[in-house]
């Protein structure tokens, strides 16, 4: 079962500022434990691939490769090395993409790997 993601609603309408960026934009997207978080994040990765304007290479290529890797993980074809690769790719994108879109694109991937590691591990072939 998935671990709980620690988004704290302290006051009405106010979200813990440390966690606001976990899923990208401050939007709150509530999912129960029956949802496949890896599938949802794969879909979010596709969104960013579509939205990338293509001006800078880390975002243009990064969002595409990130979506490819997420599909590979979701389809049960990935290895531990792919998890390490997608984390490394994501951390690079956060630092070197020119604008906020590319810098935010890997956040759903990185934070779910951090908070829902087991959901990713169970997708790896036995």
């Amino acid at each position: 079962m998935a671990q709980e993601m620690r988004i704290v609603l302290r006051n009405y309408g106010k979200i813990d500022p440390l966690k606001i960026e976990d899923l990208g934009s401050g939007a709150v997207f509530v999912l129960d434990e029956t949802r496949d978080i890896v599938d949802v994040v794969t879909r979010i990765a596709k969104f960013f691939e579509h939205e990338s304007c293509g001006k800078c290479t880390p975002c243009r290529e990064g969002t595409k490769r990130m979506h490819e890797l997420m599909k590979k993980i979701r389809n049960g074809l990935a290895t531990e090395a792919d998890l390490a690769l997608i984390s490394s790719l994501g951390n690079n994108m956060k630092k070197i993409c020119l604008c906020g879109l590319g810098q935010a694109a890997p956040i759903p991937v990185l934070t779910t790997i951090e908070h829902f590691k087991n959901d990713y591990i169970t997708k790896l072939p036995a």
Binding site: F29, L31, R35, D39, V40, R43, I44, F47
Partner: peptide
């Protein structure tokens, strides 16, 4: 729409 909320 095929964004995440419609996807789920």
């Amino acid at each position: 729409c095929e964004s995440a909320p419609c996807h789920v």
